[in-house]
Amino acid sequence: MHLEAVILALLTCTPTAYAAPKPTQPYSTWMASSFLSKKPVINRHYVSNVLGEGIQKAATLHKNATLLSYASNAISSLVSTNGTLIGWNPTYYSLDDLRVGNNLLFFWDSQGRKDEKLKTAATALRKQLDRYPRTPTGGFWHRDPAYKNQMWLDGIYMASPFYATYTSYFEPANTTAWNDIVLQFDLIEEHTRNSTSNLLYHGYDEAKKAVWANPVTGASPHVWDRAVGWYFMALVEVLQVYPKENPGYARLKGYLTTLADGVKKAQDVSGGWWLVMDEPYPGMKGNYIESSATAMFTYAYLKGVRTGLLDAKYRDTASKAYDLMIEKFVKVETNGTLSWEGTVEVGSLNGDASYEYYIGVGLSENDGKGAGPFMFAATEYEMWKTS
C-alpha cells in the first residue's frame, strides 16, 4: 500500500490520546507510516538508524514496499558511489557512529549482496575497530577523548551487534574477532553487574578517575533503564550470529538469562520499568515509568523467546509491557497518525551520574530512541500473535 493511502486510511480513526487505540493495521506499520509523515531527519546518527531499523522490521514483516523502500533509500543516501560514508571521520572514535553499520549490512545482505558501496562503507567501519582506543584490559572506550577508559552499556549495543554480524558474514573463522566481541561483554559484566539484583550499572571507568566511579569496581552508581535496554538487546542480537562452538557463546547466554531474570523482577505492577531501576529508587519522587526501555525489554524478551534463547515464561512479562505501551505511550493524533510518548531525552556519564541528574532530564516526544524499539517490539509481538 502506498504511504498516501496508508495515511488516508488512518484519517478515519477516532483520536484518543493516552487510551488504547483501535488499530486499523498492525501497530508496527502504523507507527512506521506515522513517522514517515513526520519527515524524520536522515543522517548517520544512531537515533536515525535505530528508527530506520524499526521501519525496516515493520516493512519486512508485513511486506510493505513503501516503508521498505524508504528505509533502503535512507541508508543508500548516506553513502557516496565509491562507498564512503558521507561526512564520516575515520579518525574520530565514538561507538555511537558504528550503529549505522547494522543498517548497511542488512540491506547489503537482504538485497542480494550486490551493492558494493554498502559493503565498502561497512568494511571501513569494521576496520576502524582495529585501531580503536581501548582500556588497558581491551575494552573499547565509549568515545575518544571525552570518555577515556570508560565503557558504557550503550556502547555495547552500538558496536557489538555490528562487529558480530560483520564477522559472521566476512570472517566466520576469525576466532580472534569472536573472542574480542565476547571480551567487551566480559568486561562490562565484571565491572557493572550487581549480583544481587542481576541488573547492571550504566557504565564504568577502568581508571576509576570519574567523579562517579566506585573506588573498587569503577562502576557508576545507578542502573539507568535505557542503558540496560541497549545491553539486553545487544545480547539477543549478538547471540543470533555468535558461533555456538566458541566458549564465549555459553558465557553470553548466561549473561542473557541472568539479566532476563533481573529485569523481570524489576518490572513494575503496571507492566513498565522505572527510569532509575536500582533500589530504593523505584517509586521515589521524581522517578517514573519510562517508555524507551520498556520497548527495548519487550523486544529482547520476545525475540529471545522466539529464537530459543529465553524461556517461554517471559512472554507473559513482555505481553504485560506491550499492553502498557499501547495504553500509555502510543498516542493517536487528530489526523489519525501515531505519536510516541514518554522517552527520556538522554542519559550520560559526563556529569555526576546522580539520581537527581537522571530524573532531571526532560522527556522527548517522537524520539527515535523509543519509537524505533517500539517498532522492534511490535513486530515481534505481531509475529508471536499470528504464528
Rank of each mutant, 00 (worst) to 15 (best):
L36W: 07
N350A: 13
H202N: 07
A353F: 06
A318P: 02
M375W: 11
N64P: 00
T294N: 07
W384Q: 14
T123I: 07
R99S: 04
P145N: 09
P90N: 04
G370P: 02
V330K: 00
F106S: 10
Y242M: 04
V346Y: 06
L187N: 05
Y147G: 00
L125H: 04
L11P: 00
G286A: 06
A207H: 05
S270L: 11
V241Y: 05
F170N: 00
N43H: 13
P243R: 10
Q128T: 09
S33D: 11
A19D: 12
Y169W: 09
N194Q: 12
L61A: 12
V346G: 00
K313L: 10
A5F: 07
A65C: 01
D278T: 10
A58L: 05
R134L: 09
M383K: 15
N198Y: 15
F329L: 02
F35T: 12
T29Y: 02
L68M: 11
W384D: 13
R44C: 02
V211C: 05
K208Y: 08
M31A: 12
K320P: 03
T167L: 00
Y157D: 01
M277I: 07
T12R: 14
T217P: 03
Y70F: 15
Q25A: 14
Y301M: 12
T137P: 00
D109H: 13
G138F: 05
G347Y: 03
N49R: 13
V182Q: 10
F170L: 00
D205C: 04
A210L: 12
D115K: 13
L98W: 02
I7R: 01
L349R: 03
S270N: 12
A173E: 15
S69E: 15
P161M: 02
Q25S: 09
P215C: 09
F376D: 09
S291Y: 04
E356H: 11
V236T: 14
T135W: 05
F376R: 14
P21G: 02
T84D: 14
M375Y: 09
R131D: 10
L67M: 08
S94C: 07
T123Q: 13
Q111L: 15
K265S: 09
M277D: 01
A5N: 14
R251T: 13
A59V: 03
G272T: 11
M383S: 10
W274K: 06
T294I: 10
N89I: 02
D109R: 11
S348D: 11
K208H: 11
S168D: 05
R113D: 00
L153E: 04
R126A: 08
N149G: 04
K264P: 00
P280D: 08
K57L: 12
L310M: 08
G112N: 05
K114F: 03
Y132M: 04
G336Q: 05
P136D: 01
Y381D: 11
K22F: 08
F185Y: 15
P215S: 12
T135H: 03
G351N: 11
D97E: 13
L67S: 03
K117M: 08
P280L: 05
S387T: 14
K114N: 12
R193G: 02
A234Q: 08
F35M: 14
S339F: 03
A234S: 14
S77T: 03
T135I: 11
K264F: 06
G272Q: 05
P172H: 01
E116D: 09
L118P: 00
Y93T: 07
K63W: 06
T294H: 01
S292I: 07
Y147C: 01
E206R: 10
K119C: 00
G304R: 01
E206V: 14
T135S: 04
